[in-house]
């Protein structure tokens, strides 16, 4: 039985796909058989971030409609063992995912894999609902910025009322806060919400803090999940995050400004 983790946020462009790719790859690196499922129907992008866009033959909707089987559709990663991608469809039909169809595919995957990572689309419409409905755990990707925090809270509401676990009266979805695009310099200047601020407002357990990093853009440019860039701050922050998801206690890094600049040394910050 696989553990199903949804990577969600409400707001778009906060780093869900970046995080899904990194976390999925990290779990596979840790020896867990992992599949990352792109739920962003119509706006397929996980394939690009994972660097397998030229290898897509069939997609999630083809499998649901019985036009292809999983074996034909899953793309095996060429760099990391135990890692597979199920690409989203480019169809414009927003209702292509049915609850029954998604459940059937997830059940089939569940028999094969240790982890299923669901990369959610933005919004709170049916696509996002479908991505979170069957989840056991949720990684709520949040930027330290007002609209992202508010949207994350709305998603938390959905997780606790609109999911399968909620509807069937099972134990609730385990919620993790992943703060991304964090800029400690701006936090110190009082221009950006701090980790503590966001934690206090959302009141869920913190699983990771990913700094705003050039490495993320470099990674997406070259189709390498950033976690494979082990030298980079963002790569290391994602490695820590994966360890925490697997139950390890890891101290948080990249929360403070690394080197003191000239001006700050002068005035003593």
């Amino acid at each position: 039985m696989a553990k199903i983790i949804v990577v969600t946020s409400g707001k778009g462009g906060v780093g869900k796909t970046t995080s899904s790719a990194a976390i999925g790859t990290g779990l596979a690196l840790a020896g867990k058989k992992t599949v990352i499922v792109d739920f962003d129907i119509g706006l397929r992008n996980l394939d690009l971030i994972m660097g397998c866009e030229r290898r897509v033959v069939y997609d999630f909707v083809n499998v649901i409609n019985g036009e292809a089987n999983l074996k034909q559709t899953l793309i095996k990663d060429k760099r990391v063992d135990n890692l597979f991608i199920l690409p989203a469809s480019q169809t414009r039909d927003k209702d292509a995912l049915t609850k029954e169809g998604v459940e059937r595919v997830l059940n089939e995957l569940s028999a094969e894999f240790d982890f299923i990572i669901c990369d959610s689309p933005a919004g709170i419409e049916s696509g996002a609902m479908m991505a979170l409905y069957f989840a056991d755990e949720a990684v709520v990707v949040t930027n330290p910025e007002v609209s992202s925090v508010r949207d994350s809270d709305r998603i938390l509401g959905m997780l606790s009322s609109k999911s399968r676990r909620a509807e069937q009266g099972l134990e609730g979805i385990k919620e993790h806060l992943l703060l991304t695009r964090y800029n400690p310099e701006r936090v110190i200047k009082g221009e950006m919400l701090s980790v503590e601020d966001v934690k206090e407002i959302l009141a869920i357990e913190l699983v990771g803090v990913i700094p705003e990093s050039q490495a993320v853009l470099n990674a997406s440019n070259s189709g390498q999940p950033v976690i494979l860039d082990e030298e980079s701050d963002a790569g290391q922050a994602y490695l820590d995050t994966v360890k925490r998801l697997l139950g390890e206690a890891v101290p948080f890094r990249f929360l403070t400004v690394e080197k003191k600049g000239f001006i700050k040394r002068l005035f003593g910050g």
Binding site: V146, R150, V187, G190, E191, L193, S194, E200, I201
Partner: peptide, 14 residues
């Protein structure tokens, strides 16, 4: 300090 303004507003609306 705009961050603290943001925090206060968020706490209320949330």
């Amino acid at each position: 300090n705009t961050a603290s303004t943001a925090k206060e507003r968020l706490q209320i609306i949330v």
